[in-house]
Design a protein around this nucleic acid. Structure first.
Lengths: 235, 235
DNA sequence: AAGAGTTTGTGAACGGGAGAACAAAATCGC
DNA sequence: GCGATTTTGTTCTCCCGTTCACAAACTCTT
């Protein structure tokens, strides 16, 4: 932080100490936000790093360090003001504004995503649903109507969509991704089990259900083997 | 590897060099597996680390190091035998055996998971669907019938379920998790936006859709701010 | 059979994040 | 007003994971 300040030599807007917040921290901010929201709903006014950390499922030192990247929002001897900190984190993540997303691929998963309440409640608005299957185009899901691939451009530009969600089969994912990027999307959340190639300025995050299960299976197997070895060594 | 061998002093089963494979590597093995499967389907017999890495979306040095934890399966000057390596990875992850999973919470997401083809194709068998809502119990999803919470014990023990998938609202997640663990489940995949507390021997992995979107939103905001700052500094 | 050309496996350097520990800063009790 | 107490913000150390770079090992050509 001092480096940024000294480099620019005390520029006017430097109280807003231009950060580079570690990725690992960013990934935890939404968790803290959720914990704070829960506390706020129970009318808790103040929380210590210890309390917050336990609600978020992390270590308190880590939480304090994470928050220190955002600024000095706590009070020593007291803790953090729940609502104030909540607002600061929301602002930092960018949740004080609304984001439009388009969902491509309205199969089982796409349906679930389209109806997912967690989106709207956090400032994410589904601006369009798109599917390749002519039989599905025109179908209503919630209060939205499924459009065809060809409408991607119009949807993205009309609703200023910057985030695309891909819930298609793997075979279609790269093509869909290319179209989204061409239409102006610069962040992609990919549920398809495929590796996507995108320009540098585009962010991609991947969620892969079967990979998660495979990781669990590996550990299960290890547990089982460990137990078997233990039995063998006792025999 | 030498440390393990020397420590135990050349024990009988030590060719099976008892590993501790880094978590980061384990998380990538399923990706390699998928890439290998794709190559195999195109009848590719051999692949270099460079080819495999690009198919998997990683750096070739990382891929080689990852594979070296499993054993010496490549041939210098040649590359890796696709099918052989595929089998070795599958065995390592534990995919040469079948795994039974139970899905709890058959809302939109639960439905999608129950119908997800990627499970069956990788040796994961859905042994039961469970929901709390009496109106849903008895309903058929695919060729399975939804059971009530009270049947969790029976399902888990009858089908030797070791993995539980939680797709309930956050408010129910901890209770469901406790029941699963009590029934004998020792790995949990949690889709509910809640922090779960479990005994040490239980593994939990969490998938949180709205967190992924929030991370993307943060980066979007940064991109937008960066562009705005750039414009300002040029003006 | 020997040299040229590939490609793996790994040692070593590097960077980032986690956790312990403590000094600084605030409140509270008297 | 002052010492005791609480709790933050931060420094320091350690560990894990990534990447580089190269020697070892294999094939192919002549």
């Amino acid at each position: 932080m001092t480096s940024a300040a000294s480099r620019k030599g005390g520029r006017a807007r430097d109280e807003r100490l231009e950060r580079d917040i570690p990725e690992a921290t960013i990934a935890r901010l939404p968790v803290y936000l959720r914990a704070l929201t829960a506390l706020s709903e129970r009318d808790v006014v103040t929380a210590s790093s210890e309390e917050l950390a336990s609600a978020a499922g992390v270590n308190s030192a880590k939480l304090r360090k994470d928050l220190s990247y955002l600024g000095t929002y706590g009070t020593r001897g007291v803790g953090y003001d729940v609502n104030y900190l909540r607002y600061q984190i929301a602002r930092e993540i960018g949740l004080t504004q609304d984001w439009s997303v388009v969902i491509v691929g309205i199969g089982n998963l796409g349906h679930a995503l389209a109806n997912y309440a967690g989106f709207a409640s956090r400032g994410f608005q589904v601006a369009g649903l798109v599917d390749n299957d002519p039989a599905r185009v025109g179908e209503k899901v919630g209060d939205l109507t499924i459009s065809s691939f060809d409408d991607i451009d119009a949807i993205v530009s009309n609703a200023a969509v910057s985030i695309g969600v891909i819930a298609t089969p793997a075979s279609a994912a790269q093509d869909v991704c290319d179209r989204l990027v061409a239409a102006g999307v610069s962040s992609v959340l990919n549920f398809a089990p495929a590796v996507l190639t995108v320009p540098d300025y585009v962010d991609v995050r991947k969620v892969d259900l079967s990979i998660e299960l495979q990781i669990l299976a590996y550990h299960e197997q290890r547990k089982a083997n460990g137990a078997a070895e233990l039995r063998a060594s006792l025999a």
